Computed example of a mutant assay.
Amino acid sequence: MQDNPPVSSARRAITRRQILMGAAALGLSAGSSARVSAQTWPSQNILLVVPFTPGGSTDILARLLGQRLEAAVKNPVIVESRPGAGGSVGVGSVARATPDGHTLVMGHIGTFAVNPALYPKLAYDPMKSFEPVSGIANVHNMLVVHPDVPAKSLQELIDYAKQNPGKLNYASGGIGSAAHIATVALCDRTGMSMTHVPYRGTAPAVTDLLGGRVQVMFTGAPNLVQHVEGGTMRALAVSGLSRLEAAPTVPTVAELGFPGFEASQWYGILVPAGTTKPIVDRLNAEIRAAMGAPEIAERLSLEGAEVWTTTPDEFRRHIASEMARWGDLVKRAGIKPE
């Protein structure tokens, strides 16, 4: 058997040029495809998944964004609730969706910062299963009590809880929910002790607080402002570093003797990993434009929230820092899923 004949240097140079030209052509083709994909997006209905039951802050914000996004891109945006396992069911379903920009998830502090520490076998990785698109809003938690609770201030609530161990129950939208973690953070900082009563979503928790079946709640202000104004709940404090325009007389926890305390909820849009950068950038631009309208800022402000938009990289860094912060609290408090 004879060896292959030697290849001349000229022939090697031609072959190398052909390979390089072919690779460049493929790269151009791939880039053109990505650009066309971004230019023709959306080509079908957009599904925006809310991983909780309807009626909470996540649902309120998703529907507000969905309406604005639909008007901007001239394409239907369907908001769908997929609750379960602290939001993990809905978020996990989006992680497995086709990465074409037509399936979005409303991420928030619970599903992306708390759940990784709460669930040892989470069906998604917050940092690897998604492409962050943009933050959309910050929602300050409001600490409220049923009118039958004698406390008229945060300090009076702390004193009452210490003097009446086991008497106060606080509600949340579920174990590991933003309301649960915020209340744990408050108790950790103040030394207060109350019994946790988890519900399957914020709406039923608020209903039972109104009925007096639970006495305390520390959750997103948009769910509570109307009840505070109506006198069916009493507001004692808010969780941000500044007061809410919607409730200017309610002090922050920080100014009531606990400097630096902050336990607000954040929300943002993510898409499945593998979604091309042109589509992510197009989505980011559309979302930031939608949330940047003055009437949106005014609407959110009246409900106790504020617009918070980011670049994809800024949102990714924020998720990573929040995972470290709240994951540490979950472990220290020994919080376990049901």
Rank of each mutant, 00 (worst) to 15 (best):
V214K: 01
P42V: 05
A203I: 04
V114L: 02
P42W: 03
I158T: 05
S172M: 10
L302F: 05
A290I: 00
I279E: 02
E298Q: 14
A151R: 04
R213E: 10
L28W: 08
V139P: 01
R68H: 01
S88M: 11
G274Q: 12
R12K: 14
L64I: 06
A23V: 13
Q39E: 06
Y124S: 00
E286P: 02
G274S: 14
A13W: 11
S301E: 10
L122D: 02
T58H: 07
A161G: 10
T219C: 07
L28C: 10
G268S: 10
L329I: 03
H108L: 04
R12D: 09
M142Q: 08
D59Q: 02
L26Y: 06
G66Y: 00
R12Q: 14
G84Y: 11
G87Q: 07
A13N: 05
A273H: 11
K277H: 06
V49C: 03
L104E: 00
L64Q: 03
S57N: 15
S29Q: 10
S242H: 11
S88G: 04
T310W: 05
I175F: 12
G211R: 15
T202P: 01
R288T: 12
P51W: 06
S177V: 08
G191K: 08
A10E: 13
Q155H: 15
P99Y: 12
V144A: 05
E131C: 02
R63A: 00
V139S: 15
A203F: 10
L283Y: 05
R316E: 09
P132C: 03
A237V: 13
G327F: 05
D125N: 09
R17W: 14
T309S: 07
A151V: 12
W308T: 02
V145K: 09
T207H: 12
R200G: 14
V77Q: 00
D159K: 14
G90A: 08
L210R: 13
K121D: 11
N169P: 01
V330Y: 04
N45P: 07
P251H: 12
L154A: 06
H196S: 13
S88K: 03
S29G: 12
W308P: 01
N138K: 09
E262P: 03
G212S: 07
A205Q: 03
R317M: 08
W308V: 02
A85M: 13
L20D: 04
F258G: 05
G231H: 08
L329H: 00
